[in-house]
Amino acid sequence: MLQCHYWVATVPKKGSTEEENEDFYFADHSAESEGIPSVKFALSDGATESAFSGIWAEYLVINFEKHSFDKTLELAIADWNRETQKQELPWYLHNKILDGAHATFLGVELNLVEHQANVVAVGDTNFFQIRDNFLIKAFPVDEPSGFNNQPNLLASVTTQQTPLDEIKYESKNLALNAGDTLILATDALAHWLLIRCTKDNKPWSTLIEMTQSDDFEQQFVNWLMQTRQDKAIKNDDTTLIIIKLTDGLSKG
């Protein structure tokens, strides 16, 4: 069976506060424990254009911890409606919430016993699988041109939802090996990765090296600030989850 180790960092866009960061993630607290048969990770990027998209993203990742994707969506919609209807809203929010909130969603479930992953992804928050220093899977976006300003999104109001049966949002039974590294990234970083992949730069090395540091988060923040300053990455809320898979100790 496999064991997993993970690192997370999330940074608001330049000019926004920590509280305004609309990227939300869930990482199973027990993920690094030995002998855990399966673990879940989720990442969601609330759309700048909608209101209450931060809490929408948050409810999506929270509900994914204990539920299937379909159930997650159903529960998150109920949570979001309850939250937005409990207060008297100014006219502009009263009108705006009729269109709901929008967010991307990436949910990953790793079956560490069967060495398999199921990935569900709506939008441009992306999953990458690296094996032997090669990118073997990028999902749902697999080329830089796949990043534009109109990604597929999950909507908190069902009438605003892009029909999910029209997009490929699931990748099931992906084979996992000990030594694989999985990267979950919101769009700015995912775009950066894919652009550099096309130049055969193995850009993931830069990110994976940071896991050697005692302060992964600070390393990532420093790198991101510099990369933004160099205008090599879009100024956006940015979240990175790195998951390394190793051979786990078999339990007697």
Partner: peptide, 14 residues
């Protein structure tokens, strides 16, 4: 003006 305000509105204000 309405549409612009709504577009720039977030939960904590415009």
């Amino acid at each position: 003006l309405q549409q612009l305000v709504i577009m720039c509105a977030k939960a904590d204000g415009v």
